[in-house]
């Protein structure tokens, strides 16, 4: 399978990397090349920055340029557009402000390279995506940045392409484990019970949902800061159906839930996977301790790309890496876009 086929079902595609330099930009380049060949009108925005010449932390790491086809729409900033070599026209200026200038939506008048840099806030990204659709983009790509996942929110995108690479670890087993854990987190399942899902979706604040239909609201402080205060609320209660967190659901809270519930299965529900923050733990570890994670809106994982090279550090065998990851993620296309479909220079 080629990456163009993998993303076919999604009109809005988010690209997410598991770290800096996992090959996200190369994946973006491969997608652009395939969509160009299919003659699609493309829109591209980035929650970070793409197509810059060198890495923002380590300028010894050269970054691939982003080649865009004629008529493609791109979100960039006024200052970046000024120094771009491609012939473009401003399709629409916006009010979104970034450290690199004000965001504009530009249209390419010829094939060329432009640094992509859209709005910073996810809500604003949503506006830009809708604007691009209105301006004629058949498919919009939302590129992520470093290890940020916000762009994958179901509000912004219909599916996600996840990039993993050697930079995650010099130990292949470790790299595979981390990738599997990240994929598992990204694809947290939607709550199955429709009635429960409806009740959870109605809540305006975080709460414990009880069997009898009642909801015990939780203060923000308990969810984020004084997490141990949830223990007395949970201890000894047999009638807790689910813990619902509106906003960020973080690991320290899950730890306390496990402590309070002593192995009794507990369902913890977040809006979507981009709102769940696990530190050291994995979904599997929390499950083993009795805490099962679920979401109101699931995120389709369209594909995973693998990059065997950690810039200036180490590399793995490309085929072996892809094989190992593919074995861990049945049903998900796992691609090494450089090996599968060389990006035209």
């Amino acid at each position: 399978m080629r990456i163009g086929d993998a993303i076919a079902p999604a009109a809005r595609v988010a690209l997410v990397g598991l770290a800096k330099n996992t090959g996200k930009t190369v994946a973006l380049g491969a997608i652009l090349a395939e969509l160009e060949a299919r003659g699609e009108t493309i829109g591209v925005t980035s929650i970070g920055r793409d197509g810059e010449a060198t890495d923002a932390i380590d300028d010894a790491i050269a970054k691939p340029p982003i080649h865009l086809p004629p008529m493609a729409l791109v979100a960039t900033t006024d200052r970046l557009l000024e120094r771009s070599a491609a012939r473009t026209e401003v399709a629409l200026p916006t009010d979104h402000r970034t450290p690199l200038g004000r965001v504009v939506i530009a249209r390419l008048l010829e094939r060329g390279t432009v640094e992509v840099a859209g709005p910073v806030a996810a809500q604003d990204v949503g506006d830009v995506v809708e604007t691009m659709r209105r301006l004629g983009a058949e498919r919009v790509l939302v590129d992520g940045s470093i290890d940020r996942r916000a762009g994958a929110s179901p509000r912004l995108a219909d599916g996600v392409v996840m990039s993993t690479g050697a930079v995650l670890s010099a130990d292949l087993d470790q790299l595979v484990r981390r990738t599997r854990a990240a994929a598992e987190l990204m694809t947290l399942p939607a709550v199955e019970d429709a009635a429960l899902r409806a009740r959870a979706a109605e809540l305006r604040t975080s709460a414990l949902l009880l069997e009898d239909g009642e909801a015990v609201p939780l203060e923000t402080a308990i969810v984020h800061d004084r997490v141990e205060a949830i223990v007395p609320l949970l201890r000894g209660r047999a009638d807790v159906q689910a813990l619902v967190v509106r906003g960020a659901l973080c690991e320290p809270l899950l730890e306390q839930v496990a402590r309070a519930r002593r192995g009794r299965a507990t369902l913890a529900i977040a809006d979507d996977a981009t709102r769940v923050f696990l530190g050291r733990g994995t979904c599997a570890r929390h499950r083993a301790r009795g805490v099962v994670l679920a979401v109101l809106h699931a995120i389709p994982l369209l594909a995973v790309t693998t990059n065997p090279v950690a810039p200036l550090r180490h590399r793995f065998d490309a085929a072996e890496l892809r094989e190992r990851i593919a074995r861990e993620l049945p049903g998900v296309p796992v691609l090494d876009v450089l090996a599968d479909a060389p990006v035209p220079a």
């Binding site: 929650i47 970070g48 920055r49 810059e52 923002a56 932390i57 970034t98 450290p99 690199l100 840099a117 910073v120 806030a121 996810a122 809500q123 604003d124 940045s145 470093i146 940020r148 916000a150 929110s153 906003g247 960020a248 659901l249 809006d271 981009t274 709102r275 923050f277």
Partner: peptide, 27 residues
């Protein structure tokens, strides 16, 4: 972002290697 508060808060970072370019990538 997860809290839905990104538009209500200015986020500023500082440190020895932090530039506007890096700030943009970090969000």
């Amino acid at each position: 972002e997860a809290e839905g508060k990104r538009r209500d808060l200015l986020l500023v970072c500082g440190g020895p290697r932090i530039t506007d370019e890096l700030a943009k990538e970090l969000g």
